[in-house]
Each structure stands twice: as structure tokens, then as C-alpha cells.
């Protein structure tokens, strides 16, 4: 019974996905979805190595909007670089960022956020987990990138997962 809370959340998400995929609320679909999701959730519970402890769900919603706005903004910026003069296209490179986040789920979320935002790609984490390497397309001002990632994403992720 220790796994119960995260198991129910997983089941609810799977159930919602099943109903969305079938696009119906018929009783048959409800029953089939319920049976399938409970079986799948019970059989995958054994292979999930770690449990996440997310809290502050309001911060998560805020983070979602921050990431959406950043994706739109950096889409425009990267489009400008691609269409712009040749000089700006050759300013890409790797940079290192010191990291305080340790929770594996938080790191996974950070990897998704950094990679999904055009202009930055996650390139690796040092073995001790203290330094993050990212690849930046527009490497003019390293300090600005460090500030963006640490203050906009990492602080919120630490609030959610730690």
C-alpha cells in the first residue's frame, strides 16, 4: 500500500488518455478503460525504480506558462537567426552551468524544458551531477543564459520536486 498515491495518479492519467483516444464516454469504453488501466498500472508499478514527490502544483502551472512563453519567444529568435546574416549563424557553442537540482524527476523535466526550447539543447550532466553542459545557438552572453535557466526553471523545479 505504500505505492498507492502515485499509482492512483498514474491510473487516472492513463484512464483519461484512453477515453481521449477513443473520443467517447460510452459505458463499455469506461469499463474496458478501467480494467486496462488498473492492470497496466499494477504491472508497471514493479518496474518503476523511483517515486516522484511533486508538490506545489500551482508552481507547476506557473512553470508551464513560463515555458510556453519562452518557447514562443525563442522560436522567433531562432527564426531570426536562421533567416539573418551569416555572421550570427556561426556563434553557436557549448557552455557549462552549475546546477543545484538533484532530484532525478526534476532533472528529467529540466532536460525536457531545455531541449524543447529552441536555441538550447541539453548536452550532458557531469558524473557528480553538479555541472550541466548545454549547447546554445546564440552564444553571445553566457551570463544571461545562466540567469535564465537558474532563475526561471531551476528555482521553480526545486520548489516542485524537493
Amino acid at each position: 500500500m505504500k505505492r498507492w498515491p502515485s499509482l492512483t495518479l498514474f491510473t487516472v492519467i492513463l484512464f483519461a488518455l484512453w477515453l481521449l483516444l477513443n473520443d467517447s464516454l460510452a459505458p463499455g469504453q469506461l469499463l474496458l478503460g478501467l480494467i486496462l488501466t488498473v492492470i497496466i498500472a499494477a504491472s508497471t508499478a514493479a518496474i518503476r525504480p523511483l517515486r516522484a514527490h511533486p508538490h506545489h502544483l500551482l508552481t507547476a502551472v506557473g512553470l508551464l506558462f513560463v515555458v510556453l512563453i519562452d518557447i514562443i519567444r525563442s522560436n522567433i529568435a531562432v527564426a531570426g537567426i536562421i533567416l539573418g546574416p551569416a555572421k550570427r549563424r556561426f556563434s553557436s557553442g557549448f557552455m557549462k552551468i552549475p546546477l543545484d537540482l538533484r532530484d532525478p524527476y526534476g532533472l528529467a523535466a529540466l532536460a525536457c524544458i531545455i531541449t524543447a526550447t529552441p536555441g538550447t539543447i541539453w548536452a550532458g550532466l557531469s558524473p557528480d551531477g553538479g555541472t550541466l553542459t548545454i549547447h546554445v545557438l546564440d552564444l553571445q552572453d553566457e551570463g544571461a543564459w545562466v540567469r535564465t535557466i537558474k532563475q526561471r526553471y531551476e528555482r521553480r523545479l526545486m520548489e516542485i520536486f524537493e
Partner: peptide, 10 residues
């Protein structure tokens, strides 16, 4: 790779 992300996201 950055160019590809453009089509993938927005």
C-alpha cells in the same frame, strides 16, 4: 538541431 526544434514545437 536547433532548427529542427522550431518545427517540432511551435
Amino acid at each position: 538541431m536547433h532548427g529542427v526544434t522550431l518545427g517540432n514545437t511551435l
